[in-house]
Design a protein around this nucleic acid. Structure first.
Length: 276
DNA sequence: AGGAATGTTCTTAT
DNA sequence: TATAAGAACATTCC
């Protein structure tokens, strides 16, 4: 899933492949994937080129420049939903499946925005801070301080799992990362925020940093995480341990990992290490 | 009333 | 075919 670590990898990929090449054409299979009209996207971007990137949480912003000076900045916003990806390729023979939006560059290469499930979006904005405010997107998971996280959690009265999934609390955590963070911090996913101690919030903050930096270090290749991560009990695509009984138990205490639903999302946790 | 919490829906490959 | 997901939107709560 494209949560913060994956989007960071995509950002670096775009930076190293797609900058400073004028856009000659843009192909869009389904206009519903755009948050602006196709003609606006096309007329605004053709002739311009990408100059750099920014990432806040799961959001990727691509800065652009162009031949004619414009009054306002033109920034491409990308959100990868649950299955989004990027692919830079040359020959149309190499065009990946589900590359439903394609930027064709003057040098003959293409950047494909891959969206198998159509939960992904591309749009145009001119001001990143204004966009973040409008969408209520909080501090990035890698940048948030302990006091900022504490302040955010203290102002909410709900179960900790949905609170951490909420992008206004901290930006970039999705379903599996929140489970992993709660597991590493030994906090039950259904613990109410009112009942969290300052120390537990500190553990959550530490765990967020640990999980995010680990995932980025391994370029979001889950199989490379050490065995003390909960990720290995999940049934993600291509998991080498999928359905292997030996990996359905807590790597710390050996208790069978529980599977439930919290906040409408599938949740895994250790009933022994994470108690209410 | 109204902001916050909680629930539903969209979408489609596997 | 039942399932999974992020976020927008809808509804309920206090």
């Amino acid at each position: 899933m494209p949560e913060l670590p994956e989007v960071e990898i995509y950002r670096l990929y775009l930076e190293s492949s797609s900058l400073h090449q004028p856009i000659e054409n843009i192909e869009v299979d389904d206009p519903n994937l755009l948050t602006v009209p196709f003609t606006t996207l096309y007329e605004t971007l053709v002739g311009r080129w990408f100059t750099g990137t920014r990432r806040i949480g799961k959001n990727l912003f691509v800065l652009t420049d162009g031949p004619d000076p414009l009054d306002q900045p033109v920034i491409v916003h990308m959100h990868f939903g649950m299955t989004g990806d990027l692919a830079y390729y040359h020959s149309s023979l190499d065009r990946p499946k589900y590359a439903r939006i394609v930027f064709h560059f003057r040098n003959g290469f293409n950047l494909g925005f891959i969206c198998p499930r159509k939960f992904e979006r591309i749009g145009l904005i001119d001001d990143i801070p204004a966009y973040l405010k409008r969408k209520k997107i909080g501090k990035d998971g890698l940048a948030i301080s302990l006091s900022e996280l504490t302040e955010q959690i203290r102002r909410k009265k709900a179960l900790i799992k949905p609170v951490l999934m909420d992008q206004s609390t901290v930006a970039g955590l999705g379903n599996w990362i929140v489970d992993e963070v709660l597991f590493q911090a030994r906090v039950h996913p259904e613990k109410r925020t009112e009942n969290l101690t300052d120390n537990e919030i500190r553990q959550l903050h530490d765990a967020i940093q640990l999980v995010l930096t680990t995932a980025i270090r391994h370029e979001a290749q889950y199989r490379d995480f050490t065995i003390n991560f909960l990720i290995h009990v999940r049934e993600w695509d291509d998991s080498p341990y999928d359905d292997v009984e030996a990996h359905k138990f807590c790597p710390r205490c050996g208790t069978r990992i529980a599977k439930s639903e919290v906040g409408g999302r599938t949740t895994y946790f250790c009933p022994n290490d994470q108690q209410l």
